[in-house]
Design a protein around this nucleic acid. Sequence first.
RNA 1: GCGCCCAUAGCUCAAUUGGAUAGAGCAACGCCCUUCUAAGGCGUAGGUUCCAGGUUCGAGCCCUGGUGGGCGCACCA
Length: 599
Amino acid sequence: MIQILLYFGNHFQMKQQITGLIQAALDTLVQNGSLPADISPRIMVENTRDKSHGDLASNVAMTLAKAARRNPRDIAIMITEALPQSEILTKTEIAGPGFINFFITSASATKVVEDILSQGHDFGRTYVENPEKIQVEFVSANPTGPLHVGHGRGASYGATVADILAATGADVSREYYVNDAGRQMNILAASIWLRYLEHCGANFDFPANGYKGQYVYDIALQVKEKYALSLSHSAESVFSDLPLDEPQGGDKEKYIDALIERCTELLGAEDFDGLFQIGLVAIRDDICDDLAGFGINYQEWFSERSLTGSGDVDQALERLQEKGHLYEKDGNIWFKSTDFGDDKDRVVKRANGATTYFASDIAYHMNKFERGFDKVVNIWGADHHGYITRVKAAIQALGYDPERLIVKLVQFAILYRGTERVQMSTRSGSFVTLRDLRKEVGKDACRFFYVTRKADNHMDFDLELAKSQSKDNPVYYIQYAHARICSVLEKLQASEWQLDEATGLAALSISDNDAEKSILNQLSKYPETLNNAANNFEPHLVANYLKELAGDFHTYYNSNKMLIEDKDLRNSRLILSCAVKQVLANGLSLLGVDAPQRM
RNA sequence: GCGCCCAUAGCUCAAUUGGAUAGAGCAACGCCCUUCUAAGGCGUAGGUUCCAGGUUCGAGCCCUGGUGGGCGCACCA
């Protein structure tokens, strides 16, 4: 991925410079015959883990050892001797099996503070001339009820991935695929109608397979407001001659299907649809509002039903047909996905003429690419991994490069209250909706906790920890660092002193305070942390980064008082703190977490 | 049975994507508030990275085979 960087004084830029120096050294060595001409090393410059290893390090000498048939340490010596002069380096050292360690001048290291202060909110962000258009689709839960806690991780992960991609130069569109077609939605409509009948005074057993949540009653009330009693029918006309429901020893699936059919008969298509729409809109709006409370906003709410209306489904199937990827068997139309690595072929159109959910999915993905996205990212729950192959098969069959579809799976999170596991079943739980979780734990802790682990790892989410207000809780730990800095700056405001950036920078560049060096080093890593997070879809890198930066700051704060008489020390400490504050705020905002002024 | 994901300190998790002596937090123990927010800091202790092989200068990371756990194998959405 080639990107144009607009900032300086960070490790990104340092690495590029040092890579250039090493390349020059290698050219020299090849030219004077010290190294064979046919070497083509990939020069890697990395951050060091240990301060004694300098600021940056390269392993080129080791990677060259074989081709050059020489001891890596000897090669390292040759390279360091051939390095051109540079004002950013104080010295180089050769260490271990053949690492070259680079020590950066403190003036270069301080530069990052200047950049942060001048770039503010933009520090760490990448601007690209022709940004890639990336769509990120996430959550996309069925609109048959409120979001439950199981959706929280996908929501937080997807939103953060989208924001980080946008911060690193992509043109990002966030999308929610609304599964507003299909049987589950009909069951919802029927459930609403039955609750409506109850509101109208009818009395009967609610179907075992119906939606029983409180929200169904609420929606039914809306229906009653709009339709008054015009949709009311007697219990007898509704329930006569139906198969048995499950509690009576029947099949709850057959029962509910029969009930849906009865419902459409009695209401007629138009009224049924009207009722359906009220349910859909109410729940979709509720989900939208819920996610907004999480700080998550979408550019597009894409309706599955619209795919049928627009002809996209037919068009997608026609396209597969033309390319010879469909065949008929047993009256069904099949997509030959086995040609593209799938285990078995898949039905796209049933004998009765109805297209399958998978057919909609094919059309939806075709639609995404037709809208001009360069890349399409789907965030799915881990239980959907079986669909990856068939969807990729379909888009390949349609003539798109399947690499343009990136599916990220999010593993389930298990909720704990202390050591006790929180059951999430609808039956037992007072604690099932995402809204409840947010109300109990708070938006910030929810957002942070959900992205603090790698997405493909299972995670334990401890409610007590998320709610605790102590250093145990990483959210508060980071926010507290930000609030502390704000507090000092407030005190500064009230004092006779004023912040003098030039004095501070000058003093900082000649300081030999170890805590300051650690902070400068950490600040320098922010842009590349964002890039790593974006390139690998790993927002936890940002969360971990912020924990480290906050930790560095707390250490510093504890042993270095800022509002002191010494003008140089005072200003250097203050501007460094301002830089920390800025980067904390930048990072937190990507995670959807507030950076409070005081706590 | 087949496929995907995971396994790291007593617990929850990292490890710059193949680099140097595997790091944080919690829990345990010992310190630091007359000081800008102690919602904080300093220190001690804690490891056969599930097991067995392999690849190479070098493996927690890659390959093969196991063990254990999660998930998925619909003409459901």
